[in-house]
Amino acid sequence: MKKRSIQNSISKIIPMPLAFSPLWPFIPICNLRDFSLLLNKGRSPNTQIQGEGSLLSYKTKDNIIKYLFFLCALVSVLVLGLIVYFLFIEGVPIFKVVSFKDFLFGKYWYPTSDPPSFGILPLFLGSIYVTGLSSVFSIPLGVLTAIYLAEIANPKTRSIIKPIIELLAALPSVVIGFFGMVVVAPFLQKYLDLDTGLNMFNAALMLAFMSIPTICSISEDAIYSVPRELKEGSLALGATHLQTIIRVILPASISGISTGVILGMSRAIGETMVVLMVAGGAAMIPESIFDPVRPMPASIAAEMGEAPYHSEHYFALFAIGIVLFFLTLIFNLIADHISHKYKQVGASTL
């Protein structure tokens, strides 16, 4: 890197005649080609732009690279397509046994009793409730932390706290689940006098921990990238810092914040290990936030191992996967829509 810049600057600053006499000590730094370019400087430009007679022309090389990249991009699309295809192949047969409506709105999930009952409403609601409750914790915490980091904290504090929050995202979910199981659950059980600490509240809390980094990090980037001109414009009109944050900075970064919130929630809704470990696992419609629940991902993870291949139970679990897929898809579409509709608007572009 360094050598390269030395070469460049030398070939830029040395006028032709000088290149010979006093600069011999420098010449070895330049490679032969640079040197020949230096010598060619006086000649007609044609000699310089001619190709080097390599085996492939630049155009062919460019094309090869182009298709290579296209192929890489194609692989992920293809894989996604295959997964979705597989999901449907394995999930749709359940609807021969139970109607779509009974599947989605049935209140009883007894896949192994005789006759089995495949109503996923308790699981579906379990997912929705847990995610909803977790966002009650994670949205204010995440967004307020983001505002603090981007607007209020001094650069040094910011440089310490931000990586720590992002590190939280790097924690394996099983570790968070373990923490919820071993620390939070006994605590809740003891101090709130509950039958079990493994419940919706606990799961929501743990999921909030998992989605805060996403929410905070994306929101912080959005808030931080609000142009300084806007902030100064508000302050110059006699607005306080708080007024500036609420009236100018937040509206200007709302698209980024919403994207962060929704991606954080979609992370929570698809999260498996944490809910498997701490949600309690009871497939019933919860009546209070301290009831145990069994969200959809937890059901799939817990039951897939014991469902016989191509049994009704097996198909039903894949059908849950389809529902989950559509749920996260909707979340992502909303995030995408918001980030397009409320594009970050900055100072005017002339």
Binding site: S234, L237, G238, R247, P251, A347, S348, L350
Partner: peptide, 27 residues
């Protein structure tokens, strides 16, 4: 609010024309 300022690059808020001018009163 006693010493106002106009900047080099126009920096209207991403609000309506009316709200931009009314901003000083809103705050």
């Amino acid at each position: 609010s006693k010493v106002g300022m106009v900047f080099q690059k126009p920096n209207p808020f991403p609000k309506s024309i009316f709200e931009n001018v009314a901003y000083g009163f809103r705050i």
